[in-house]
Structures are given as structure tokens and as C-alpha cells.
Design a protein around this nucleic acid. Structure first.
Lengths: 221, 221
DNA sequence: GCATGTGAACTCATTCACAGCA
DNA sequence: TGCTGTGAATGAGTTCACATGC
């Protein structure tokens, strides 16, 4: 069956860069720039211009040959693609140092994400407020919270799977997991994992390789 | 020219999974498991067994056909590959909520990373201690800190590039950047970026796509 | 028999190079 | 002329399927 207008199917690698484009374009818009070339954007993101053009043309975007892309329009285009028209409701589960830091982070609301609920099962924390929001128990969450779009898990590793199960039960279909475990979730639920140790170990690997290369007296690769 | 033993060249995608293997194997070792199959590991990491075998054989690893991999040995093998024999010295720059949370995080030391210095340029913070370490100014960092392996940047976006430049000047060649900017660094310096808004926006994209799909009454992909 | 290790097939992503159009 | 949009070429990563060896 033929597609109505262009068939959607933005490559995952492109999706991963869209927030970067959006950030750069927002900055350009704030600076009063009306249009921008793929080469400029490439510089700003640290990638190649052909990549930029491929990415943007995957959105069905309209650049102007010989001129570039209209900054404001491309902004809107990408924001729409990311579904940022609607504000998202975020719940943070786990109010340790990291959870509290994220709860207090001011960079979310202006980017379309509003923290609407905080959760911790530690009785000492329940009832206290962080950034104006009260902490509740996970099992009280269904009431009064309205629809939740995104769950952020900042619990210890041991608790994370159970939290994820509960969130999925509440209808959450997007999870950002900071706990160092692989979460099992049903099809249709998206999980992204952020792990500090993992990142550091990857950096360590490269440092180690450089060390080995230096010891061998290799040319710089 | 022929390689001495197997030529090193672990694919980047494999490197990204090594910390996950290490975590799973550490857990297995703690649980007293002596050996493990690629299928078991695949389950634990949420990937396929062929992937596991490819990854591990890239390390020149010795599994035993018909049996599996020796847990303790594979642990050592991967730790060696990641260069974790040596403890790494980490400096955290930017002692806002996130920086302080990371400074207080206990999960680093056991994984080979020791926070040896904390930096912030806010006079109100300099001299205070977080997790037993005093906060100093960035320009005092060269003295008494010994060698720094990894810089973690948790400053506001505006300050991040300057901090990165300074760190590079101090000999740091691995940077973990939490600030929402693309850092420019010389060749040979590795940067990994972690950005909360980016992650959330990627999740939002997929949620948005599901919504569109639902509205069209599509089959589940 | 059973699970590893690996060539080959395949899918996904990046880069090139140039046609097409303002 | 200059910059976009894109087919073609290349490269990276994943999956398949089976020969290999304990």
C-alpha cells in the first residue's frame, strides 16, 4: 500500500541527533539568525554537512538551495517531529542524591518536560518536598497524578526492576533508567539507560588503548 | 606486517557493551557461578547470543566449546581490556546539584574510579567539603592533585568549553560532559556526552510516533 | 551432544560526489 | 554561483547458520 505523503521512518541514528539540532537552532534563533547552512550546523554539532542534509531531508524538510535552512521553521519542524507540542509529565522515582538533583534541575520545563511527581519509599523522605513537590510512596502514585508520560528511575539497582514494573502498570511507556541494571519491559515500552560507570569505563578503555599505543611507539591513529 | 598475537581493534559497539558484560559477570561470580554460556549472558544483557560470542571472540577470549565461558577468567579478561587494573583519578568540575550528587556517589570507587578533586569557581562553595573532599578553584588545580585521568564536567553550558580547555591543558584526555554543549577538543582527547534533555526528547519522539501509529489504527510494529 | 567461533548475508549508517534548483 | 537533496559507494554492526572442537 502506498504511503500518504512521505512515509515516516526516521532512522534511529538521526533521531538521536535531532535534540542536538534543536538545541543549535534554538541558540541560532535567540541570536537572531534567520537562516543557516548544513555546513554551519555541521560545525556546531561536530559532524559532517552531508550528515546534516541527510538527517534533515529525512524529516521531509524544506531547505532552500543556494541559501540554507530557515532557522525558525526548522526549529518548529524538529520540535513537531519530537512531539514537543505537548508538555510531558515526568515522574522521578528514587530521591537519593541523583534523584533530588534531577528534581531540582531547571532545564527540563523549558524543553517540554514537567516533573509532576516525586516518589521514594523511604518513610523518612515521604512527605518532605523537593523543589516544591511532595515525595510520595510509589503505591500512592495512581491517585491524583493524572497521566504520566515518562518515568525516571534513580533508585538503587535492586529496586529498579520492580519500579519499572509498577510504572508500566500505571501506563508509563517511556523510561529513563539511571540504575545499573538491564530492565525487562513489555514490547511497546521504551527504555533508555544512562550509567555513569559505563561511561567512565568506556573512557577508560580508550585511555588504556592510547597507553598501549604509546608504549609501542605507534604513530597517532 | 603481521600482528604480534591477535591484532587489537575491538569495534566501538563492542566496547560499549563491555561494561555491561563486566557487571553481569561480577554478579555471576558473586553468586558463585563458575561458568556461563553466551545464551545466559545474552539474556542478562537483553541482546542475542551471537552478538555475545562475536563480542567476546573480539577480545581473543577463550570460551570452551560445549561448555561456555569461565566466569572469573572472563571477568579478568574484560577488566584488563578496559584497563581497570589501574585506579583512575577523577576530577568533578561544577558543584551544583548534579556535581554534588556525583561526588557523593559510592558506586565509582569499587569500579576503579576515585574522585580525587572537586572544583567550583563559586566563592561561596570554595573551601566547603563534599564527601570529605574540599572544593577548590579550577586555577588551583594543577598543584597537589597529582595526575588526573578523567574530568567530569557538570557546570552550566556557558562555562563548559572553558573548563574543557583547562582540563586538556592539565593533561586530561578523557572527559565526561553533562553540560548541554558540544565540546571542541584536540585530537587524542575523548569526550562522552550525557544529556538529560536529549534522552528525554528521544523518548518523546518514540512516544509521539506510537501516538501517530495509534491514531492511524496501525498494527503493532 | 553441545556451545563456541566465524565466514557470509544482511541491515543500518555514513560519506561521497554530483545533479538540480534558487 | 552556492547550497540543498539524493543515488551510489563505502563502512560498521548485527544476525544467520554451520563447521569446529571439547
Amino acid at each position: 500500500m502506498m504511503a500518504e505523503s512521505t512515509r515516516r521512518g526516521v532512522p534511529e541514528a538521526t533521531v538521536g541527533r535531532l535534540p542536538g539540532y534543536l538545541r543549535a537552532l534554538t541558540d541560532l534563533a535567540d541570536a537572531g539568525r534567520g537562516s543557516v547552512s548544513s555546513e554551519d550546523l555541521a560545525q556546531l554539532l561536530g559532524i559532517r554537512s552531508a550528515q546534516v542534509r541527510k538527517d534533515l531531508s529525512a524529516l521531509g524538510s524544506y531547505g532552500v538551495r543556494g541559501v540554507g535552512y530557515d532557522v525558525a521553521r526548522l526549529c518548529d519542524q524538529i520540535a513537531a517531529e519530537l512531539g514537543l507540542a505537548r508538555q510531558r509529565a515526568v515522574v522521578i522515582v528514587g530521591l537519593g542524591n541523583l534523584g533530588r538533583a534531577l528534581a531540582a534541575y531547571g532545564g527540563l520545563a523549558p524543553r517540554g518536560f514537567e516533573v509532576v511527581a516525586l516518589v521514594d519509599n523511604d518513610p523518612a523522605l515521604v512527605g518532605t518536598t523537593v523543589g516544591g513537590l511532595p515525595a510520595r510512596r510509589l503505591d500512592e502514585l495512581d491517585r491524583g497524578a493524572g497521566t504520566l508520560d515518562v518515568g525516571v528511575i534513580t533508585t538503587p539497582a535492586e529496586a529498579a526492576q520492580e519500579v519499572a514494573d509498577t510504572l508500566v502498570g500505571l501506563g508509563v511507556r517511556s523510561i529513563l533508567n539511571f540504575a545499573p541494571v538491564v530492565l525487562r519491559v513489555p514490547d511497546g515500552v521504551h527504555v533508555r539507560a544512562v550509567d555513569l560507570s559505563t561511561e567512565l569505563q568506556i573512557l577508560a578503555f580508550h585511555e588504556h588503548q592510547r597507553l598501549l599505543a604509546d608504549a609501542r611507539g605507534d604513530e597517532v591513529g
